[in-house]
Design a protein around this nucleic acid. Structure first.
Lengths: 290, 290
DNA sequence: TTTCTTGGCATAGAAAAACTAAGTCTGAGA
DNA sequence: TCTCAGACTTAGTTTTTCTATGCCAAGAAA
């Protein structure tokens, strides 16, 4: 009692941030991904915080963590605080004379859809400073420092998406393969993350394709596309991503029956108060309004 | 253009905290003190942040820094964010089974006023876990993790102070010295931070004391008090701090003319939403209501 | 003037924190 | 039963952060 220690320090800020992310996502792995570190780091942060607070924050289960009752109450407070902090940081970034425009997109979109548009953008506004980060799932724009994101989503999912295109799929292959093609026996090419494209198309059109799961899988859609161009098989093409290959004749439609997947190519922006000063120019161009 | 780097990281959180403190206090030195580090550390954080943002945040002058126009706009945002964060941290701390009660006080108060009360407190609630930190100026209770502070202040200064006592001063000395004492020639004892006590008293009472600045200075009031007890001279006594010495007879009043300094001994609490669950018991006892 | 004091800057080295990598453990589902 | 996902642990490394020191400039004081 009545010791006189040095000024008491709060817990490490990074540990608080780790807690907030883990609490919001209810997963150390997802939190780690959002913060760009390994899950082990998150685990350590949480442990440090639990030690500091003298209380346990998560209930560890073998297949994932869940917030303990006490942790749940805190989540809201911390999320609010870090949202504000993130907004302030965005303002700070926008102070710079010509701040970079950070775009987040699905790898396939980043490789196949964006480049052409960004080329035009650069032509029109040569001073803009754009960078693109590819990732599997859309970042929280309230938290991460992106100025714009382009992903596929099912419509009621996002808050205020700007719909750029419907996602329409139809099979395509190299011109050499197209004559006398038998969809029931030819190799089918798949993207890792869109494994049921073939099944969906076959069911929707009634066209028989044999085993819809046969054939090689690629971790990148752009890779599958290259393979298709060189005649490795038939790819289920997402129209908005293969426009260029169709125009140039590098790929041909195998069937004219395109179907909608129900997803849309959607563009999202952060809250108004934290938008990049020149984001409107970019959005207008991406929507092809000019 | 269109590189695909790893997930972009924001600036280090600690740098943001340093900026917030420096911006609010408009001084690296004060910010360093608040955060419990050296000024050099703050300087480095700010520089890192300025590099990250590509903009300068402070205008450096030889006798201190001032916020640049762009920095000023950000201050409010960051202060809000860190206030929230600090509140959330407080909630976290209060989750623990029996969280410590952190008291901040002026060194003199921590040494001379608190101990007796804390003794009673311990007697009445033996399970309470109290710690005391001495510091020269009152901490921001919205920011630092204190549950209660006791300082001298001039009334309109604090937001919601609980006034514990008026600050009344009068000269005291050891019993052996009191007979035939000549205030114009005896040694006067001073506390470093209350150098004008003697002048104020002399002017208010009209009693001549010779040169009011003569005699030794002590960096701690408790030290001056000990010296007075052992007969080194006459101390300007702050009544609320020397009650015990007067009661025990270790010190005698040299004059019965006490005057008010205009300051009050005041107790402050953080905002309601972040108070320690058992703070009311402590406050009641410190106010001597029970 | 000259000197002193205050507040900030730069740098090197030391200390602390954060991160990764690799292996372990556990429960769920095939 | 086997496999897998998700979390944990630990050791070692890398990165960040901090301190200590000396320096400099401008205002205050002598």
């Amino acid at each position: 009692m009545a010791v006189v220690p040095r000024r008491p320090k709060g817990p490490p800020l990074n540990a608080l941030r780790a807690f907030e992310a883990a609490a919001r996502l209810e997963s150390f792995v997802l939190a780690a991904e959002e913060l760009g570190v390994t899950a082990g780091a998150i685990s350590q942060h949480i442990k440090a915080l639990e030690t500091w607070a003298g209380t346990s924050l998560f209930e560890r289960r073998a297949q994932g963590v869940s917030l303990s009752a006490s942790g749940r109450k805190l989540r809201e407070e911390f999320t609010q605080a870090f949202d504000l902090l993130s907004a302030a940081t965005q303002s700070l970034r926008n102070l710079a004379p010509n701040p970079e425009i950070h775009i987040a997109a699905l790898p396939a979109i980043a490789q196949l859809w964006l480049p052409e548009r960004l080329g035009k953008l650069r032509e029109k506004y040569p001073d803009l400073n754009v960078s693109v980060t590819a990732m599997e799932s859309p970042p929280s724009l309230a938290r991460e420092l992106f100025d714009l994101s382009v992903f596929f989503s099912v419509p009621p999912e996002a808050k205020n998406p700007i719909v750029l295109a419907q996602d329409t799929i139809l099979p395509v292959c190299a011109p050499a393969l197209v004559d006398g093609l038998d969809l029931e026996s030819v190799q089918l090419l798949h993207d890792q993350t869109w494994q049921d494209d073939w099944l969906m198309w076959s069911e929707a059109t009634g066209v028989a394709v044999g085993d819809p799961a046969r054939g090689p899988r690629y971790s990148l859609y752009a890779l599958a596309l290259e393979e298709a161009k060189s005649g490795a098989g038939v790819l289920m093409g997402h129209v908005c991503l293969i426009e260029k290959a169709l125009q140039s004749g590098a790929l041909k439609r195998v069937s004219s029956q395109g179907i909608r997947t129900g997803k849309v190519l959607s563009l999202e922006l952060p809250h108004k108060s934290r938008r990049h000063p020149r984001i409107d120019e970019v959005v207008r161009l991406l929507r092809e309004e000019e």
